[in-house]
Each structure stands twice: as structure tokens, then as C-alpha cells.
């Protein structure tokens, strides 16, 4: 599932000697599987290599089908030793997804680092663990403004939106490449040449447009780093009337099969001394009804009543 590759190339030719710096340039590219992290890092590595640098690239990939976290370290310079970037040493942090960018922030050098992030949010399932009514997402609450105040140079843009306006949202990574191109010292035509050699022939036009649009955006927003008029606030949880789940157990019908106890995601049921299901922690219950669905004996009833409405089971 997880694989690490190291591409190592020797210094090639004397043509690009002038762009080769003493200290390696460190670019960290992060995102979610499927967004094109590897494509971005390949473009950058090829470009740097063509300019006469020694390049080392190291990545974790293979998560694309799962939407997992993907990162890629690209280091280039006169002489590169380690294929990975030390903590706090990245010159550029390029994030294709907002929270992934925040997660890798400690790797960015505070004195000279450039932070580039797409404000697109891909909310992972883990951020939705709280199933209670009206529960907030477990996603980062920091706004682009908060983050840009913490870094020296930062760009937060809706690259996916820009790519969508060009007709292909999958070109978002190329938009970000355009922004990245302003932070690195390579010529625009070299960038375009490498990008065109990497993307599928049918998408050359849209990628070209996306790159130029990203570059143009970065030049236009060089001072602030973000679109002032765009709303980056997180969607608030849907306004629902909070319900208080209540679990009723028909003791005479329970046959102690243990399914509800073992299947409850919140572990709020148990078997009592007579091996009959019992509510152990009613405050943890989210009212997901799994116990009700899976009880083969119909002994469990889950009611989601308006909060404050405490009902007692009425018995004849």
C-alpha cells in the first residue's frame, strides 16, 4: 500500500549552472490521493533537473483510491544528500488540500518559507465521527487569514474554483503550479514545456490556461495572498432541533445474543447479571439505531425525542 521511491539524478550538463544554488531548495507538496501531488512533484523535479540541478524526490503514494494523505518531498540544488526535508526546512509548502497544508505547517521554514494552499476542503470520514445531532465537523477551524498571518509569505486561493471556471476541476494542481512558479526561479516557458510533456494530450490546453491563470493570480495578489471577497468560512452544521435518543429494551423479549452490545459503535450497552441487554451509558448514545436494526428479537426500540421531553414507557 505504501511505497517510497527515490529518484536520484546526477548533475546534468553545464547549461543551467547559473540557477544552481549552494543550498538545496526544499519543496514539500502535500494533498489527498487523486489530486495530482505526484504529477506536481514530477513536473518540478524534471524542471529542476533540466536546469542542471541534482534532484532527489521522495514520496508516499498509492493512496489515490482511498483518498488518503499523499506527500512528496522534492529537493534540488548543486548537491543533495538526504531525499527528505527536515522539519522546519521547507522553502515552499504546496498544499492541494487545506487541512493537509495545515498538518504539514511545522515543516515550513518560518523565516523564508512560502506557503501555497488550495482552500478546497476534502473532509475525511474521521472528521465526521461525532454523530450527535448538530455536532460540528472535526475539521480545522483556522481560516486562511489566521494562517497567512503566521507565515512570512502565503497564498491561499480557490484553485479548484479557478480550474472549474476553466472547465476541468482536475487542473487545480496546475493552477497551484502557476502560483509555485512565482516563488521559484525558473522561466515561464520552461514550466509550460515540462507541464505539456506530462499531462494527457487532450488536456494540454486547459492545463496551459490553468498554469497561466495561477501565475497571474499570484502576481495580482502578491501583497495579501488571498482573495478578500471570497467566503472561506466552513459550512456550519445543519440547523436541526437537537434530539435526545432514548433506548427502550423489552426485557422479556431479549435472548442475550449479545449482538447489540458488540455492534454498538459507542459501546453504550451491556449484558446485566441475568444476561439481558441493558443501557450502560445513555449519555453516549447518538441514536444511530444500529442496535434496533440488528436486534433479531425486536427487543430494542430507539426513540429520538425532542430534547427535554422525557418519556416513560407506558405499560398496561
Amino acid at each position: 500500500m505504501t511505497e517510497t521511491t527515490v529518484n536520484e539524478t546526477a548533475s546534468a550538463g553545464a547549461s543551467g549552472e547559473k540557477t544552481v544554488a549552494e543550498r538545496p531548495t526544499n519543496v514539500l507538496i502535500v494533498g489527498v490521493g487523486g489530486q495530482g501531488v505526484i504529477m506536481v512533484s514530477k513536473v518540478l523535479a524534471t524542471l529542476a533537473q533540466a536546469a542542471g540541478n541534482q534532484v532527489k524526490q521522495s514520496e508516499v503514494h498509492g493512496m489515490a483510491k482511498r483518498g488518503g494523505a499523499v506527500f512528496s518531498h522534492v529537493r534540488f540544488g548543486r548537491k543533495v544528500f538526504s531525499p527528505t526535508i527536515p522539519r522546519g526546512e521547507a522553502d515552499v509548502l504546496l498544499a492541494l488540500e487545506w487541512a493537509e497544508g495545515l498538518r504539514w505547517l511545522p515543516y515550513l521554514n518560518r523565516a523564508r518559507g512560502v506557503f501555497i494552499a488550495d482552500t478546497q476542503r476534502i473532509v475525511p470520514p474521521f472528521a465526521c465521527r461525532n454523530r450527535a445531532d448538530g455536532a460540528p465537523l472535526g475539521y480545522s477551524r483556522e481560516t486562511p487569514k489566521d494562517i497567512l498571518a503566521k507565515v512570512r509569505t502565503g497564498y491561499a486561493l480557490n484553485a479548484t474554483g479557478i480550474a472549474e471556471s476553466l472547465g476541468n476541476r482536475r487542473a487545480a494542481n496546475t493552477v497551484l503550479l502557476g502560483v509555485l512558479s512565482t516563488a521559484l526561479d525558473f522561466a515561464e516557458k520552461d514550466w509550460l514545456k515540462v507541464i505539456e510533456s506530462f499531462v494527457p494530450p487532450k488536456t494540454v490546453e486547459v492545463n496551459r490556461a490553468a498554469f497561466l491563470k495561477g501565475r497571474e493570480w499570484a502576481e495580482r495578489h502578491a501583497d495579501v495572498g488571498l482573495d478578500e471577497d471570497v467566503d472561506f468560512s466552513l459550512p456550519s452544521p445543519p440547523a436541526v432541533e437537537p434530539k435526545r435518543p432514548q433506548v427502550f429494551i423489552e426485557r422479556a423479549w431479549c435472548k442475550s445474543c449479545d449482538i447489540c452490545v458488540k455492534m454498538c459503535p459507542e459501546r453504550c450497552l451491556e449484558l446485566d447479571e441475568k444476561n439481558i441487554a441493558r443501557m450502560k451509558a445513555p449519555e453516549r448514545c447518538t441514536g444511530c439505531r444500529l442496535c434496533e436494526y440488528l436486534c433479531p428479537d425486536f427487543a430494542i426500540r430507539v426513540l429520538r425525542l425532542p430534547a427535554g421531553d422525557s418519556q416513560q414507557e407506558v405499560r398496561p
Binding site: W253, C257, D297, R301, V302, Q311, V314, P316
Partner: peptide, 28 residues
């Protein structure tokens, strides 16, 4: 007379005089 919240209530469809049913514990 049971309290309700509008969700499906299986007791409306069962012959309650025959419950609990004869099937073994955990039978699917």
C-alpha cells in the same frame, strides 16, 4: 400507548400475543 417519534414501529406489524418469537438467540 407506546411513545413514538414517527419512525418505523415493528409492533404495529407483529402478532404480539405470539412474541417473543421461537427463533434462537442471534438468528438472522
Amino acid at each position: 400507548k407506546l411513545p413514538r417519534d414517527g419512525s418505523f414501529e415493528i409492533r404495529d406489524w407483529l402478532r404480539l400475543e405470539l412474541m417473543p418469537h421461537f427463533m434462537c438467540p442471534g438468528c438472522g
